[in-house]
Design a protein around this nucleic acid. Sequence first.
RNA 1: GGGCGGUUAGCUCAGUUGGUUAGAGCGUUGCGUUGACAUCGCAAAGGUCGUAGGUUCGAGUCCUAUACCGCCCACCA
Length: 902
Amino acid sequence: MIDHSLPKTYDFKATEQRIYQWWNDHGYFKPTNDPNLPGFDPMRKPFVISIPPPNVTGELHLGHAMFVSMEDLMIRYHRMKGVPTLWVPGADHAGIATQLQIEKALAREGTSREAIGREKFLSRTWQWKEKYGGIITQQIRRLGASCDWERERFTLDNGLSHAVREAFVRLYEKGLIYRGPRLINWSPGLKTAVSDLEVEYSEEPGTLYFFKYVLADSPQEYLPVATTRPETILGDTAVAVHPEDSRYQQFIGRNVIVPILGRQIPVIADEYVDREFGGGALKVTPGHDPNDYEIAMRHDLPIISILDEAARVNQNGGKFQGQDRFEARNNLWEEMRAAGLTLKEQPYTLNIPRSQRGGEIVEPMISTQWFVRIQPLAEAALQAVRDGRIRIVPERFTKVYYNWLENIQDWCISRQLWWGHRIPVWYCAECGGMTSARQDPTSCSHCNSTHIEQDPDVLDTWFSSGLWPFSTLGWPDETPDLNYYYPTTMMETGYDILFFWVARMIMFGLEFTGQVPFSTVYLHGLIRDEHGRKMSKTYGNVIDPLTVMDELGTDALRFTLLVGSTPGNDMNLSIKKVEANRNFANKIWNAGRYVISALDQAPVDPVLDPRWTLPDSWIWARLQTLIRDVERLFQTYQYGEAGRQIYDFFWSDYADWYVEIAKLQLAEGGDRAFYTAYTLVQVLDLSLRMLHPFTPFVTEEIWGHLKRACQAHSPRLAPGNGWPEALILAPWPEPRDSDGWEGTKVSEFSLVQDIVRAVRNLRAEKNVQPGKRIPAIITSEAHAETLRSQSKVIASLAQIDLNSLTIAERLPSKPKGHIALVVGAVEIYLPLAGLVNNSEERTRLEKDLAEVNSQIQRLQTLLTGQFTEKAPPAVVQKEQDKLSQYQGTAEKLRSQLAALDR
RNA sequence: GGGCGGUUAGCUCAGUUGGUUAGAGCGUUGCGUUGACAUCGCAAAGGUCGUAGGUUCGAGUCCUAUACCGCCCACCA
């Protein structure tokens, strides 16, 4: 009877790779409406996602697993809805990360990038990319990603480099890109500038140093100044006090002496100074502090840089030249102490700026860099969200987005790296002019000199990723892909890169294409360990998605990530959850396996038209409700809740109840068996379709077996529109309006369920031997008819002896020696010889009655209050019905108690 | 300093436009295995939904305040 060709446990290892290959080989990941192919229909609106490109150096982590699962879910859903669907995959060259990786390898070989030179370094990096760059996309395939791999792109490939060049030159020509010396964040280890976003602040214990700024014309007087970075004294160009600070009025305009160096600098007045802090006097180091830089601009102060690119003191630091910044800090302070210039030191909590990459302390430094004048771009990007052209889910992030764009600073886009898009600007050795061009120029555009040299720097990685949604489709060329698939539909990514990436894509999209790059931004949360801690190697709490997939299967991991998360909120992941979902995948497998095996019991053709049993109608009604709910949830991006509902339906309603009843119905043979098999198949088919975007592998695999078994058995078992070619292409279940019969069937069947549960419960309570069939009498004025029709179901599920089961409207008198159960308007008598104990019975009945009475009490109070006037009639009616139900139950309980007395 | 999120069962989390007996998984307890599945089944215990107010006929859900935890932005030297 059982199809032994199917193993009793779902074997994901034998399935996943094969199924993925099969999908890919059949071109199922390709859009069904391709502008490059004949038969293209430009009027059909596509659903398009550009993948957030992982770093080529990347190793798959849970963040990747999350976005792939989420996006694949959206893609598969739309594909099944019949929407032309494109998911563009690709990878990011990841300037700093990749360069560091290669530099590390070089260091192991005892050399360095400087030693081998730019050209060799780049060819070496490309070699590495060719060899290992595909690992991450292979890993993404393992997750089941149904991307169109023929459209895979890389941020440094020719097309995208072309796009980057075009974007830069356009901005340059528009005056939105400029070059100049500005205070930027300098990473001394990497020896490059980084943007504001790439700096992270961390609170760390440190020291606040107090010292004297001695007056030049009066060595006895001094201003007390506090600093956390004494070495910056070397670059001080003023001391500032608050203009209204009475203590220091007499010093304003006079000069003070820079300790050790002996330079004279002015005392100025500026409102920025906080009179309460330290001594109320502020040293001004415009070369190494953003606020001081502002002050210097206001007062036209000189700016002195004291550090070189490795953060060692330079020639401006006098005798400290050549010392490391921290070394200089100590040495200078010691000399000042010796000179009697120090006042005190106190412990102080510092907010240290550290590089996002590498974690070293970043120095604010004056440096000549390239910047994007961001204001005009930000304005447009704000507008696009304000007027609803772009919607952010969850909505609360719009505020974060606004706030960032409203306070944005110009974006430093040049990096002193080698791996990346070279800045397309050439400097003329003769006239000093700059030439920026789409094609590499051979001469200066100003003086025609051929002595030109390209800027050695490269662009911030995010500059090219900012173009991603359209550069991957062929921009700046007007390709068919760009015309049809752009703007894309959905940008799904983690909220942690809202600024880095999402905002920049919006700005660039609007600037370069005049259109929003996508209409919806869906932000998922971060994944933490089971107790909400960040996953990190030092804690040892990192969960590796590859290991999880190896051990528990891809579907289990996907389902866990999809169902365990809500939009924008972090999720805590534990292996236990994945195990539970591995079990679910197995449940799906076995339900399918059972249905396939059950076909043998059904005739090939029915003789008569369908006659559905209550359970048949019930499961169908439940399924219809589910389809409607899932549709609503998908429309509102509540994918997790949708998954949970499908899970509950499948496990509880379908597997636990309907399949068990179906076994009985099949045993009846004939038409009953046929229609039961039919229902089993149809409900399973539709369930698998809804589960497919969540757990694509197991559903495709078992569905394939189901389809073949059904086809072999009878053409009459096929779904309404026939068997699709593959589940991945199967039409999504369309919601239908409820005809009203659904509610009736659900409530009738829930009566059956309640009776079964009540009897099971009592059996467990009284330790009735499992499997032992017991007699029973069930009475109900209103439902006897329904219950009689379900006597086999009730008898079987509650393990009642069918021959000794009596169902009646009423009994002439209460039976003696029975345990009596009251379930709503139904009474159940179980003659459990030897287990009936009058005092126990009394206790139980009284407990039930007390509970029911308290409900009656509650409802009576409710229904005499203003509730009846103010609440909607339907709600009132519902409560009214409940009350009469309870009253009936109470009545029955009371008469049971009375019967005990006799 | 500004903003956001969280606080619901022992643990980890759901909970739709407010609708009146608050759900799941894991864990715990008891019972159960020759026919889909022990990666299983049946049953049970377990929550005054952080606190205090308010709106409402009705609040886990809306408002105000507050406590604690977490995050983001800004960076007073």
